[in-house]
Structures are given as C-alpha cells and as structure tokens.
Write a protein that binds this DNA or RNA. Structure first.
Length: 708
DNA sequence: AGCACGCCGACT
DNA sequence: GTCGGCGTGCTC
C-alpha cells in the first residue's frame, strides 16, 4: 500500500521526480482481457526500451518488456516494477518493431506475440539467477573465420551469379533452383562472405522441419563450427534458453531454426535465408497465425539500412513469391543446372483407367521396382496416407467406421490392430461384426502406407540382393517415426543400403540425400489433383518435384548402373496439363498457368484473404456467432473494398467434439482488409454472450490463411 | 487466459 | 466441521 502510494505520480511525482519514473510495459495480456497492450508501471530509474522486467499483474508476477514511456499518465494508480533484468542487454528496436508488426498484422495482442517470442524458460528466471547464468557463460565471441573448418568447393557460374546478386540487389532474392542445383552452397557462401566482411554480423537460416533436413545443419556446422546454434521446438527448455541467449548476446553467428526462429533476438542480423520457402509449415496454425517467410521479408526490410538481405530459396516457389518476382518486387535468380551432371528423372505416367479398379501398384511399376532392386538400386514409393486402410466398411449395409468425436473416418491400423482417428487420437478395437446390421464381412476400403509396405514386401519376397540377402522394404511415416531416434535410424538404414524400397508419406520426399535411389513413384496422386482446396495442385507439384529430386543424385552411380532415372506417377488423368509441365521439370510454365487461373478467378496473390474461425459445442452457435460478426462489420472502414462470404462449416466440421465454422474475407486491397480487421476486433470481443451463441468455445482470425 | 474470490456436497 | 466443485470478475 505504501509502495503503491509512493509510486502514484500525483502523490509523490512532484515531491521526488528524480527517483520515480513511469514506464510502459508490454505484458502477456490476451486480447479479450479488456486490457490494453501496454500497462504503465513505475520504477526508481528510467529503463531503456527492450529491458526485461518482472511486474505484478493482478495476483501474479509476470515477465514483461519495457516498451517506452507513457504518453499520458494513467488514471489508475500504478504499481512498481518488481525487478528489472538489467544484466541482459535490452531487446533491440528492430526486434520490437518486428513483434509489433506481427501483432498488428495478424490481429493478436502485442504482449502475447512479444512474450511468446521469448524462450519459456526465460520466464522462470529471476534477476539473480539470470546474473549467475550470464556470469557462468561469459563466452567470448568465437573467431569464425579464418580458418573455416571446411574448405568451400569452387563455385559454379550459377552460384557465382546468385552470390553477386545477393551482394548487389537491394531486394528479396528468390533463389529458384532445382534440387541438387547447389542452393545450399549459395547459402553457405553468402554467410561466409558476410562474416568475412563483418565479423560481428549474424545470419538466420530458416528450414521447414529441422529433423527432416539434418544434413543442412551438418553442412553449416562443418563450415562454421560452434558459430552455429539452433532454435526449434524439439529443444529442451534449458537448451532453448541457452541457444536463445547465445543469439541475443551475439555469441552465435548463425541461427538455424524452424519458423519460431524468425522471432529470435539477433542484434546484428544481416542475412536471412528461408530454405524451401514454399513449405506450408512456415505458416503457424495456432496462436498468432504468422507466416515466418513473410515476416522474414519484413524483418530484412527493417534491417535494410544496416545492409540486411533475405534469400527465399525453392525449387518450386510459392505462387505468392513467384508473382512477387514477376512483378519486380523480388529479384528472381535462376540456378538451372543440376550439379555433378545428375540427370532429371524421366516421367512415366501409369494410366489407372487401363488398370483394374482399386489397383494399388500397377504391374509395370511393380516390375520396374523389382528390376531396380535386383540391380542393387533403391526405390522410393510415395503414398500420402498412413495406416492400412483409411476406413473399414460393411459390405451389406454400407456402414463405415466413423469417429464418435469427429466428422472423419477411423483409420484401420494393422500394426496395432486398432481403428484410430487421425484428428482427435480416439482409438477403438476393430468390431467383429457391423454395429448396424451384424454382418461379419467388414472390409478395409482404400489403401494406406502399411498396406503398400505389406504388398511390396510380399511382391519382393522371392527376390535376393547380389549378396544373397533378402530384399528389405521399409516404411517411413508419422507412425514409424514417432519414437525418439526412429526417424534417424530409418534414414540411416536407407543410406546404408539396408533398405531397398522405402514406402512412406510426404516426409520421405524432403531433402534426404540418398545416393542409390533411381526410381521414385507416387501411387495415389489424384486426390490432390481435384481437391476442394485450390492450393492442392501447387502443393502436389511441389511434392512431386521434391520427390523426383531424391532420384539420381549420384551421377557416377547412375552412369555405372546404366539405369534410367525415373519418376512414376499413377493417375487416372494422365492428360492433365500439370503432368506436361512436370515431365519437362518446367516449374515456370506450371506457375504461369496457375497464376493465370488465379488472376481470372481473383484469388491470391491477386487478392488478400482472412478467415474468421469460430468453434462451438453446437454448429449452429458457431454459425450464429459468425453471422453476428458479419453484421458488426457492415459500417467498418474498408468495408466497401472487402468481400465477406457467408459463414460455412469447415470441410472437417467436427474435431474432438467441437464444431467449427468459418467466414472468409477477401479484398484486392490489402490495406482495406487490414483496416477492416483492426476496427473489427474490438467489436468481435464485445460479441460475447449473445443468447443464440451459447456454447461458443473460441474464435480466431487467420490472416493470409493457407488451409481452409 | 490465469487466478482469484465465493457459495454448496463427501470426507480426514 | 473442512476440502473442493467450477461460476463470475479482475488484472497498470
């Protein structure tokens, strides 16, 4: 009480102005708490913006970040800052700007975004423990160069051109290069040149999934040693804090991380690399739904005065980035030759209309796989559906195994002889008879990776390798890689040649550098070709290009074998124009065709979208809430330029007993959409508690949504 | 969102 | 007689 009174500027501010300072502090207040983003506290001395502090909030003590000084003194008496962590350098102005922009653009509370960007373990610390931690690790800035731990290889012409562009072009670089064209070497050398020029500089390298691309981390470590650190969600809380501190204190020169790393504190950031920039995992799907790739471009612009650059790399860029390059906002740098003389796989289409219905593996494809395995080569077979069969059904009455909590089928998993829901985790034993009619003939419908593995293993059972050992079929999907280290073991087994044929979901298509693969096959492709999601063709093309890139990586091996490197695709629509572009490995043609479709339909990137999502116990409550929301938008700024569609249930309406619905907003004018959203938010918060929306669980806005 | 305070059932 | 159910309400 005394402390609070002494802090009140009205009471003591005049009496002792030198020792009482008002500060705006950002604390983790969810937007709907009714509190503003910045709360005013007082302290004995002025603290620079970016200083971490602990402050009382209600009955709790929370970590906050000093954001500045209040424009006006608040009406309510202010409470004092409990402790200021002055041992830690303040978070830089650019970091605060990035966080502020992300909060504004994605319509989240500033405190939520700012505090979520810090390692959780930091919030557990106090000033004393922080002090000890900082003293215990007074790591000097390690000398990165010279000498580099590994001598870089000579550059190809394309790589030299790319590096020249990076150093001279003051725009985001779209590094467009096929798998194996040497993009990674460009990242490495761009980083090396930066560090040679400016020994204090830092680089940020973003990857979609760090566990699926261990060799990128290996290559950075081989070149830069201990100057590299990592930031991703698989780190333990202590590691994450340690790595974050290394970046914040400038001990780490290079941060390699997943999308969350875009918020790392990097005071000397001069280069951002976004590898596989088209990958949808750069878009966060919970909390603040940010795009790390888009924020990377923004962050580089914030640092432009200091010479910060951004490289977006991909063999199949997002249509957004491709269009930005077409329109001159990004600079496209094309690396068109595959290094080491490796040849591109030839496309072999299997027309499923010529095959018996329900064919999983057409005889010519199976024969091709057998022939390769017999010669000591390897094959990858892609099927984007895990489990044995996506559903089991009753022959007599048409009953299908449905999830009691979701509007989805229970998937038959033969490995544990159970039915499993892939959306809520519900599991059930396989019923002996149909629950509806008692019929005992229940049949699995459709195929998953387990069944494909089984069928291939049976087909290859009589084959032997050159050394007389039996041929081995392996499987890689979320089920087989759940256990710690299982993923690495399977990948190693493929590397070592212990596995001849690897079956799996799209995770087998990622950047693994398998040397003896000469055939890649996609056996169930058509679902994505005609999916209701209009981004599906783009993703399918990227997946098939990426999968194709796994084949023929070792030119010497391929030449010695005398094999043709092939990509097999089973489809009932072989005349689809996408396959013509795929056969020529012509992403530019595919992108041009897709962008033309988007332009005429007024779809992104020719318009901008946001989704308002609502979840409720009853679907009607969610829909009613969205209708109220639409009504509340009628007179908002920007409304004339923003199209609001009717609220609809989501494609997968119910998940874990919660009904989901959404409302799409679309505008050709991004600022109009942003203005509308910003003005809409307070009204949406005020919508709580309407009588026909009882059972509403939560709602959220997804700006630039990727999935519908 | 947390985390209080605040009024009604089965236990040491 | 207490421990605890989660219903409203507040957080500079």
């Amino acid at each position: 009480m005394v402390a609070e009174a002494s802090c009140d500027p009205v009471e003591t501010g005049d009496a002792n102005p030198a020792t009482e300072v008002l500060l705006d502090v950002v604390v983790p207040t969810p937007a709907h708490s009714g509190l503003g983003d910045r709360l005013t506290y007082c302290h004995t001395v002025a603290l620079p913006p970016g200083t971490l502090v602990r402050v009382p909030l209600g009955a709790r003590a929370v970590v906050g970040i000093v954001w500045g000084t209040p424009a006006t003194a608040p009406a309510t008496p202010v409470r004092p800052i409990s402790e200021a962590w002055q041992a830690l350098p303040p978070l830089a102005a650019e970091w605060r700007e990035l966080v502020g922009f992300a909060a504004r653009y994605y319509q989240r509370a500033l405190g939520e975004v700012a505090l979520a960007a810090l390692p959780p373990a930091l919030r557990e610390l106090d000033a004393a423990r922080l002090q000890r931690r900082l003293q215990r690790a007074p790591e000097p800035v390690p000398p990165v160069s010279p000498p580099p731990a590994e001598t870089p290889p000579p550059l190809t012409d394309a790589q030299a051109a790319a590096l020249a562009a990076i150093e001279t072009v003051d725009q985001p670089i779209l590094l467009f290069g096929a798998t194996g064209s040497g993009k990674t070497e460009v990242y490495l050398q761009a980083t090396a040149r930066l560090l040679a020029r400016d020994p204090q500089a830092q680089a940020l390298v973003l990857v979609p999934e760090i566990n699926l691309t261990p060799q990128l981390e290996q290559r950075f470590r081989a070149r830069f040693g201990d100057a590299v650190t990592t930031l991703h969600s698989r780190l333990t809380p202590a590691q994450r804090l340690q790595h974050w501190l290394a970046a914040h204190l400038g001990h780490a020169r290079i941060v390699l991380g997943t999308r969350m790393a875009i918020f790392a504190s990097l005071p000397q950031l001069r280069l951002i690399v976004v590898d596989e920039e088209h990958d949808p995992s750069y878009k966060s799907q919970e909390g603040a739904r940010y795009s790390a790739r888009d924020l990377a471009v923004y962050r580089a612009r914030l640092g432009a005065d200091a010479g910060c650059r951004v490289i977006l790399g991909s063999a199949t860029p997002s249509l957004e980035s491709w269009h930005a390059a077409d329109s001159g906002r990004y600079r496209r740098v094309h690396m068109d030759d595959r290094m080491g003389g490796a040849r591109w796989p030839r496309l072999r289409l299997v027309d499923l209309r010529q095959q018996p219905r329900g064919t999983l593996l057409a005889p010519p494809l199976q024969a091709a796989i057998e022939a390769r395995v017999a010669r000591g080569e390897q094959a990858l077979v892609l099927l984007n559906r895990r489990g044995y069969a996506p559903v089991i059904a009753c022959d007599a009455c048409g009953w299908k195994s449905g999830c009691p909590h979701c509007s989805a089928h229970l998937v038959f998993h033969k490995a544990d002889r159970r039915l499993r829901c892939h959306h809520c985790g519900h599991t059930a034993p396989i019923p002996r008879a149909c629950p509806d009619c008692g019929n005992v003939d229940l049949a699995p419908l459709g195929r998953g990776t387990e069944q494909l593995e089984e069928q291939l293993a049976a087909a290859l059972a009589t084959l032997q390798r050159a050394d007389g050992t039996p041929v081995r079929v392996g499987r890689l999907d979320a089920d087989t890689s759940r256990a710690r280290g299982a993923l690495e073991r399977t990948l190693q087994a493929v590397h070592d040649g212990a596995i001849d044929v690897l079956v799996g979901t799209q995770m087998i298509a990622k950047g693994h550098d398998f040397r003896r693969i000469t055939l890649v096959a996609s056996v169930n492709t058509d679902g994505a070709l005609f999916a209701s999601d209009w981004r599906a063709p783009e993703r399918l093309f990227a997946l098939l290009m990426q999968a194709a890139g796994r084949a023929g990586r070792d030119a010497a091996f391929v030449a010695a074998q005398g094999s043709a490197v092939e990509l097999w695709v089973q489809t009932a629509y072989p005349e689809h124009p996408m396959f013509a572009a795929l056969a020529r490995h012509d992403y530019a043609a595919f992108a041009a065709q897709q962008l033309e479709e988007r332009r005429s339909a007024g779809m992104p990137p020719f318009s901008h979208q946001a989704l308002l999502r609502a979840e409720a116990r009853q679907l009607e409550a969610a829909l009613a809430w969205l209708r109220h929301a639409a009504e509340a938008a009628h007179d908002l700024p920007g409304r004339a330029h923003v199209m609001l569609y009717a609220p609809v249930p989501m494609a997968l309406t119910r998940v874990a007993g919660i009904e989901r619905a959404q409302l799409l907003l679309e505008s050709p004018h991004r600022p109009a959409l942003q203005a509308l959203l910003a003005a809409w938010m307070p009204r949406l918060h005020a919508l709580r508690g309407l009588p026909d929306t009882r059972g509403l669980v939560r709602w959220a806005i997804d700006v630039d949504p990727l999935s519908f």
